[in-house]
Nucleic acid binder design. Sequence first.
DNA 1: CTTGAACCTGTAGGAGCTACAGGAATTAGT
DNA 2: ACTAATTCCTGTAGCTCCTACAGGTTCAAG
Lengths: 151, 151
Amino acid sequence: MPRAVTRSRPTGLTIGKLSQETGVNIETIRYYERIGLMPAPPRSQGRQRLYEDLHRRRLAFIRRSRALGFSLNDTRDLLGLARGHDLTCAEVKALTEQHIADIRGKIRDLRRLDRVLSELAGQCRGSTVPDCPILDALGKGSEAARNARLP
Amino acid sequence: MPRAVTRSRPTGLTIGKLSQETGVNIETIRYYERIGLMPAPPRSQGRQRLYEDLHRRRLAFIRRSRALGFSLNDTRDLLGLARGHDLTCAEVKALTEQHIADIRGKIRDLRRLDRVLSELAGQCRGSTVPDCPILDALGKGSEAARNARLP
DNA sequence: CTTGAACCTGTAGGAGCTACAGGAATTAGT
DNA sequence: ACTAATTCCTGTAGCTCCTACAGGTTCAAG
């Protein structure tokens, strides 16, 4: 089945409506325009932005890309805005796989932190005596502290 | 056993030496001083900072706290610099447990991203044909994209 | 005494927004 | 038709946690 041509009725959304419909903050929409992620929309006579379906679809794309953790620069690439050409499917896949690798790296780091911190918290009675195993671990070059790495 | 009193011989480290010893960037050390995490050290006649053991221990504490993912503000609290009093052991434990909860939340989010992205990447043949499942998922309000949440 | 390395201050940038301030435009209510 | 409330506009500054200059001073070695 060929891709349906979405014919856009002239919606003329104000920025507030677009914000409501997409769940993207007004200031964020203007920010995306400033950095060239969103195209500058036509304006009303009083200089207010009036968005069309085109913009709504673009913004929804950006929002989903961000929701999947892609950076704004990645998103720019995915939109085909970088260097003026669309990515091939292979390039998109490569970008995604790199992103997955980054995510897995972060998960590993966070799990290590979780282990170390849980261990420390478990040693802590939480009393009011001055001696605290957590502060001790931070203050001395303890085994526990050395098992963690900078993020 | 009572806490040993660490008697500091007057080391007089320059900032470069302190940086080397602790693995903390020179600019970062000065930054910590600016924001009040590190105390201002005495200076040489030519206004150069000269650090003592006190400072080295403080900086090592900060570095370990950061390595465990505590924010600078948390670190300030852990150092007993906030509101002018030390945290009790119970407060330290509470802070740590909140931090652990945050970390687990992040892990959950990242694992969801991993699942969704891996699924998408798996559907992608990586060919050069224009139709890409990943871009489709971003472009349309797909199931996959809805399963992810903003970070 | 002259290099060259290390230090100094102050400022700007980066990621990705968010939050104003101070003003203009639109809309709703009367 | 008039006013009041709401929305919108631009521009700038703030957030976190550093990092990277620029343009100058001081120190240590030769």
